[in-house]
Each structure stands twice: as C-alpha cells, then as structure tokens.
Design a protein around this nucleic acid. Structure first.
Lengths: 255, 255
DNA sequence: ATAATCTATGACGTAACGTTATAGTCAAGC
DNA sequence: GCTTGACTATAACGTTACGTCATAGATTAT
C-alpha cells in the first residue's frame, strides 16, 4: 500500500511542505513516484520519517539526523549520550531562567524593578552554562574522562541557586581584583595572589585543579572565543592578561 | 565616556555584527556617531543592551524585546507570567526527552533497538505538550480562568512519567476504537459508547469535563489545525468524525 | 461534467545574525 | 610623516527549516 503526501503528513503531524523539503535535501525520498509525478510513500518510509522526527525532537539538525540514519555503523549510543549532557544543561538553564523570571515578577509586584546588577548576574550565569553545555564535549576530550571532570559534574549538580550566586559573586570579585591590577603586569605579587585565589576557588567549588589543568584553563580563556568574550566583559583584554598571569603562576610553582 | 563597537561587544559578550544588526533594526541605536561615522555608545546604551540580552535570554524575540522596552506602560508582569508557563512546559518536555533518551541508550546497551511503537509514543507525548504550551493562552481565554482549567493544571503537574504513559495509552486505545468504527457513522452505539468513555477519561485524569466544555473540545479538534493533525495521525479524518460524534453525544444528553 | 481537493514545482520570506568583500580611520612605531 | 596593524563602516550573500504564495496539472466526488 502506498500513501500520498498529505496522508503521510497527517499521520506524522508534519506539513506537506516539510515532506517536500525532506525530499529535496535527500533526507526522505519516497519509495516511488506515480506516472503523474506524485510522491508515493511506503510503510518503510513512514518508519524512517518517525526516526527523523525522533532525532529532530531530540534537538538534532536535519543533516545530523541524516548522518545518523544513513550510517548503519554510526555510534548511536555515543551520539545520544553526548546529547543527553546537553539536554541536562539545557534543563538546568531553564530552571535558572524560570527562577529569575519568578524573581522579576515578584519584584514587579513589590513595585521594585530588578536592578541591572541582578540582571547582569543572571545573564552571566546562564552565559557560563551555555558555554559549559556547548563545550562539554570538547572539555571532556581535553581533560579526558578524568576524575576531575566527574568530580566537577557531581559537585555542580548539587548546587542550589544560592550556591551559584555565592560562587559567581566570588568569581566576579576575583576577576575584578585582577582587572584592577592589570596595569601592574601579570607577574605583580597582587595579581599572583589573586590568581592563586582563583585556583583555590576552582578547587573548592568544582574539582581538584592541578597545575596542568590550571595552565590548560588559561589557554582555553584565550583560545576559545566564547570564554574570551565572557571574561573580557569584566574588562577588555582581561582574558589574555589572565592567561599570562596563570602561566607565570604555574611556572613559578613548577620550576 | 563613550565606547566603540568592539569595546561594547567584548563587554557584553556579543559580536560586533550583532550590534550593527541591533542598530539596523532600531533596537539599539548608539547615542552618538563620530565624525568618521563610528558608533559611540554610552553607559545608558550598555544598560539597554543588558536589558535586551536579558529578555532574549528569556526566549523573547528581538521585536518583542523592543516592544517591551519601548513601551513604558507595557505590562511586563503579564508578559513574564505568560512566558513562565511556556518555560515550565518546555522544561517538562525536556525531562520527557531526557527520559526517552535514557531509555533509548538503555535499549541499545541491551542490544534491543527501541521499536517504533515506543518512538511513536514519545513523539505523540511531546507533540501534545507542544500544543499545550502553544495554546495554553488561547485555552485559558476560551475556558477562562475556570476551576476546570486550574484543576487540570494542578493534576497534570503531579503526573509522573508512568502516569502519563498510562493516560496516553488509554487515550490511544479509545481513539483507536473510535477510528475502527468510523465506517459505522458517528451516531453508532459503539462509537457513542467510546465517546462517553473519552469524556470520562478526561474527567478522571484532567478536569470535570462538562457537556459544554466537551462540545467545545470537539470543535477545537477541527478548528485548530494542530489538534486536527495530532488526532488524524491515528486515522485521517478522525478529528472531523470525532467532533460529529461528540456533538451527537452532547445533543442526546442535553435534549 | 464540473467543482472541490490534492499534487507538483518554483521561488520568495522569515529570524538573527555569520561571513566575506571592499574601503575608509585611527594610534603607534620607525 | 609614513607605514603597519587593529579597528571601523556599509553592502550583500549565506544559514536553518521550513511557511507562504503563485501557477498549473491530476484526482475524486457529486
């Protein structure tokens, strides 16, 4: 039995245009075509469509879905596991956003507008999470499935909103201190002291930050534009400066 | 003090192009322009940018953000409250997706591929949630802030994954029964019996489904394309048929 | 047979920028 | 005072996953 476009569209809950599109990009070509040029789909096609929609629902793009479905040897488990991480982060971000919306609503009710300070905080936090989500995979590759990484994830998962607030506040404080001393140069004692605090802060709240990791982190701040952007929000050029200071810090301890 | 594009971009963590874009669409115009045509931003502009990014982070589009920021009298609370609902739904959907990813991973581990039946279920559920999210507002308008609606929301909020599975399974069963009897016509006793069960199912699991609401629900199935599409997935034409049957059911009880 | 419905193929529109391409501007070092 | 490098400007096409006409032929129902 063959189905025509609209039948398939209705069954799957997608538009006819969508099926045209999937045909065009070679994602789902109908098994056959009628003499008049009508697309004729079979049950097999329907199944593939379900799989496409499934992966789409999971947030994969159409090209990615195609890659997954067209490569029988593709490591679905790997792909799904990686994607799972993303979804978890996304969810956590949503929760934070909801909380912040709630606060905003509350503050409006109380006639007090949320101030920019608070807005900045909210934004910074979600930005950082975004980076984490996007670069979870790369980070994993860089640091491997090390204990450090796992430790970080486990700790982070337990943090409450207040914890985050505290941690971010402290982070900003340290950043600010370093930014204020930028003119003194990266090897200045005050800067080095702040850098030491920064490493301690990471160890306290995330994972055992070894010198090796700390050095790599400094590199990341400059190599990864998104980290750079985030750090340079405190003061332009801070990221680059921070890497220098962190390298000097590591050199001093390792020599 | 004035800032140039890149300074602002670095501070806010956005691209220069983004600022150009915001200028173009009139969302954020720099306070002044240098003789050479350079955009010069002030602190005020920075604040507005933060607000823009804040609302963007909350999922608003740029036009919406503009509307909110440009209308001092705009009901921010209303907008935020409406948006909150959406976020909650989004979060719930994410949770379901994560659960389904987990199951898929598990089934791959066990060497058993998830079957289409299961995939369909997952997809159906998230589809329905999508509709709920999108039409929460309209639904509220239609049924008002009635007790029925509140009851529904309260009940739904407590459902676990297993509850949903049970409810959806039963829903599909009833739909299927009606679909199988379509040829007999909407007033057929078997169909009417199934329709009665459908109403009972809604009452049991969501809210006290009065005849008035039930009739309106039937209309919704046809008037709202997304409901139609979803229902016609069981069998094309089912939505229209269902409305007929539901109307007949209501007529019989009300006369 | 005629109307209503469905099908096809273009081809432009959307949102929020990314990405060249081309050209003018500014601060610093020689 | 001139070159160099970093920055700025506008213009315009690319991206994603379709939506939305427009035009025209095919199928189905009455």
């Amino acid at each position: 039995m063959h189905y025509k476009v609209k039948e398939v569209a209705d069954m799957a809950g997608v538009s006819v245009r969508t099926l045209h599109h999937y045909d065009q990009i070679g994602l789902l070509k109908p098994e056959s075509v009628s003499p008049a040029g009508y697309r004729l789909y079979t049950e097999k096609d329907l199944e593939r469509l379900q799989q496409i929609l499934f992966f789409k629902e999971l947030g994969f793009g159409l090209q990615e879905a195609k890659n997954i479905l067209d490569n029988p040897g593709f490591d679905r488990k790997q792909a799904l596991t990686a994607h799972r991480e993303l979804l978890i982060k996304k969810k956590a971000r949503l929760e934070k956003i909801i909380a912040s919306v709630d606060e905003t609503i509350k503050s409006i009710k109380g006639g007090i507008q949320m101030n920019n300070q608070e807005m900045f905080k909210v934004f910074d936090m979600s930005e950082i999470e975004k980076h984490q989500a996007k670069y979870a995979a790369e980070t994993r590759q860089k640091y491997g499935d090390t204990d450090a990484y796992k430790e970080s994830m486990q700790k982070a998962a337990k943090y409450t909103k207040d914890d985050w607030s505290r941690i971010m506040s402290k982070s900003n404080e340290i950043y600010q201190r370093i930014a204020d001393s930028m003119e003194k140069g990266p090897s200045d004692p005050e800067v080095q002291e702040a850098v030491a605090q920064w490493r301690q802060h990471i160890t306290d709240n995330f994972y055992n930050c070894t010198l090796e990791i700390f050095r790599g982190l400094g590199d990341l701040y400059v190599d990864d534009d998104r980290f750079t952007a985030n750090i340079d929000k405190v003061k332009p050029g801070l990221a680059k400066f921070l890497r220098e200071a962190m390298h000097i810090y590591c050199d001093n301890l390792q020599k």
